[in-house]
Nucleic acid binder design. Structure first.
Ligand SMILES: [Zn+2]
Ligand SMILES: [Zn+2]
Ligand SMILES: [Zn+2]
Ligand SMILES: [Zn+2]
Lengths: 141, 141
DNA sequence: AGGCAGTCGTTATATCGTAACATCGCTGCA
DNA sequence: TGCAGCGATGTTACGATATAACGACTGCCT
């Protein structure tokens, strides 16, 4: 949160109440939240109740790297390393919903070679693994 | 198409008219099609007009590896290598919509190391790159 | 003051996806 | 033959996700 504030100050970005609270909501959650989950919490706090409110705040946070969108879940998680340039990959537990972020340069470089071969120019990548987290895997034994 | 037929015969799977036509529709398309795009074509052919028809056929085809779902687009493409066990990755052109499939063992192995470190057990992966295909990149020069 | 850009608030609608239940046709078996 | 069981299909109805479009407000610059 502090990192986000500093980054916004430094980059001339406006971390408005809605955006700030949206980021807090995601930081407080252990699991990915859908836009409507976020919206419901914003509504409770009196910060808006219509979809565009949530989608705009999430769009801002994603655009500036404070939040990632999980395509597989149509949901959002706070970034582990906000501010840094990175190429995230995610591990999504199908049992408990936990979403872990890690860096996946290997994934991208693997793709990169294929891309170069075919002349494709990568702008961004989505890398998401689905499975069981350590805790849930152990619980299943 | 022939491969799909043979694979279904061999595995005791029923490639019914709706499923068969759905696969044909995707094979004929250069770009990923949404479920409702597929449905519209099925409707024209008199094979069904309600969403579950398309979703069920697509579900069958995805489950048996004849078709892949592109999470980033909420859309579907026919597999390049049906029948074979593989770990697909996709390159999605933002200009022309072309979706290329390639194999990405590197992507998965990069993730795998991280997964092992954290005890996460991968069941499946999504690897999708967005950018410009060779043709569109050249056209932009 | 007037113009401009960015944000917010709202309405309405588009797009994507599924639960639930009825029905139909086949297969195996009494 | 008659019928249970099963997978596939057809249909209704709804839920979930996402965006277009427009107006109002605010701070800032000229
Ligand atoms: Zn991150
Ligand atoms: Zn778990
Ligand atoms: Zn494939
Ligand atoms: Zn292209």
């Amino acid at each position: 949160m502090l990192q986000a504030e500093r980054h916004c100050d430094g980059a001339g970005l406006r971390l408005t109440p809605v955006r700030r609270r949206t980021l807090e909501i995601l930081l407080e959650s252990h699991v990915a939240l859908g836009a409507y989950d976020v919206l419901e919490r914003l509504r409770i706090d009196g910060l808006g109740s219509k979809p565009p409110i949530a989608y705009r705040a999430l769009g801002f946070l994603v655009e500036h790297g404070f939040v990632h969108r999980i395509e597989k879940l149509n949901a959002f998680v706070a970034c582990d390393h906000p501010g840094e340039v990175h190429d995230p990959a995610f591990m999504i537990c199908t049992d408990c919903g936990l979403v872990g972020e890690c860096q996946a340069p290997a994934a991208r470089s693997g793709l990169s070679r294929r891309a170069r071969e075919s002349g494709f120019r990568i702008a961004s990548t989505v890398v998401e693994a689905t499975g069981l987290c350590a805790m849930c895997a152990e619980a299943k034994e």
